[in-house]
């Protein structure tokens, strides 16, 4: 079954949106989505790392021995994360400071390892690149939308520009931890609603969203919980 190039690209934006449908990469999304600009910054960083690592892993898929593939993937991903990290430090230090520890943590972002295992290790270089770009855009859009909602409600601004601040008292809890969990939960509920539960059914696999799903032996047994 050959998928069209376009459908590979759009797959990650809507049908398999990494955050809202696959529920991957939850930690950084929750943590940095307090300001819209952070959402974009984090999203683009993930996009670059994801696309580059997808390309390399796909190109090396015949060379990497199956038994040590996960450490190999991690080395590839960590290399690109380091490059992005150095780039941000040099050119956008303010963003680097705002994203802080979550930049090095892209290494363990399950979206990237998940795509390496699920897509790049099985598909051509071009397709893997498109998959990386699509997933990256999907991630960026979601993180930015979520950050816009939280910034608007919690600070009354969007991208730092005053919207309701000054007229309506901002509900500051939205930019705090509980607001993050809550907005994320509501967005997922919205996706469930819009897709009439199809996505939720797909998510029933218990290992979905688990960081170790890419290489855990329990996946085939239906998860580590009864």
């Amino acid at each position: 079954m050959k998928k069209s190039k376009l459908s590979i690209l759009t797959n990650g934006i809507i049908r398999e949106n990494p955050v809202l449908v696959l529920v991957l990469g939850t930690c950084p999304t929750l943590a940095i989505s307090t300001q819209a600009i952070n959402g974009i910054g984090m999203g683009l960083s993930v996009l670059v790392v994801l696309t580059c690592s997808n390309i390399i892993i796909s190109a090396l898929k015949r060379i990497i021995p199956d038994t040590v593939r996960i450490p190999c993937y991690i080395v590839v991903i960590a290399t690109f994360v380091t490059i992005v990290q150095l780039f941000l430090k040099a050119y956008v230090p303010a963003l680097d400071k705002a994203l802080g520890v979550y930049i090095p943590l892209i290494v363990v972002n399950c979206i990237i390892l998940g795509r390496a295992e699920a897509f790049a290790s099985k598909n051509s270089v071009i397709d893997s690149a498109l998959d990386g770009i699509g997933m990256g855009i999907g991630y960026t859009l979601t993180a930015t939308v979520m950050a816009c909602i939280r910034e608007l409600l919690g600070s009354g601004t969007i991208f730092g520009a005053t919207v309701t601040a000054g007229t309506i008292t901002p509900f500051t809890i939205m930019v705090m931890a509980p607001g993050g969990f809550f907005v994320f939960g509501c967005l997922i509920a919205l996706v469930n609603k819009l897709t009439k539960g199809r996505v939720r059914a797909k998510r029933q696999n218990k290992c979905m969203g688990c960081p170790g799903a890419a290489f855990c032996s329990k996946v085939e047994e239906g998860g580590c919980e009864e």
Binding site: F181, F182, G185, I188, A189, L190, N192, K193, G197
Partner: peptide, 19 residues
């Protein structure tokens, strides 16, 4: 509620817990 079944309600519960 239908839309909140699964991870969505878990996240709302986490939100209240983190309070």
């Amino acid at each position: 509620p239908e839309s909140f079944k699964g991870i969505a309600s878990t996240l709302v519960a986490a939100s209240i817990t983190s309070l």
